[in-house]
Amino acid sequence: MTKTLPVLMLIVCTAAPAWGATPVDVYRFDTPEQETRYKALIEEFRCPKCLNTNLAGSDAPIAQDMRRTVHDLVVGEGLSDQEVRDYLRERYGDFVLYDPPFEPRTYAIWLVPIGLALLGMVAIFLLVSRARQPAGHPLDSADRQRIEALLQDD
């Protein structure tokens, strides 16, 4: 009994990489360049049903279908990368793009982080320049006499 547990754990540990493996589709490509483009494209799109996974990393049925569509568009229809992007965006919306377009509708998501970063830099600059200023005014002779008097008291 005491030995079965470590053995089980060993089996689980060695088998785990197989469970975590990304799904593999078998597709035929006419040129290596098509394969490279296909792989780059399925890395680029987000699976519409998944929490946050790209098409390449998901084994959801819809991701499989979309990979097949990307393959068909690249190899069968001979579309360019941008045409494939437009095709999927037309059907699934900006959601499938990890990189949202820069449009009036999306200005906020692009500009707010930049604005906050600038604000932070201004705040840091102000804090630092304030810290650099010498505290108070330089001592004059009256101050020195008072200090002397205070020290003498001890």
């Binding site: 519409p48 049903k49 049925p61 819809i62 279908d65 979309m66 097949r68 569509t69 037309e90 059907r91 699934y92 919306g93």
Partner: peptide, 13 residues
């Protein structure tokens, strides 16, 4: 049968 039309329609399920 294989979800080709589904992708054409932007269907996710």
């Amino acid at each position: 049968p294989d979800g080709v039309l589904g992708v054409e329609l932007g269907v996710t399920g």
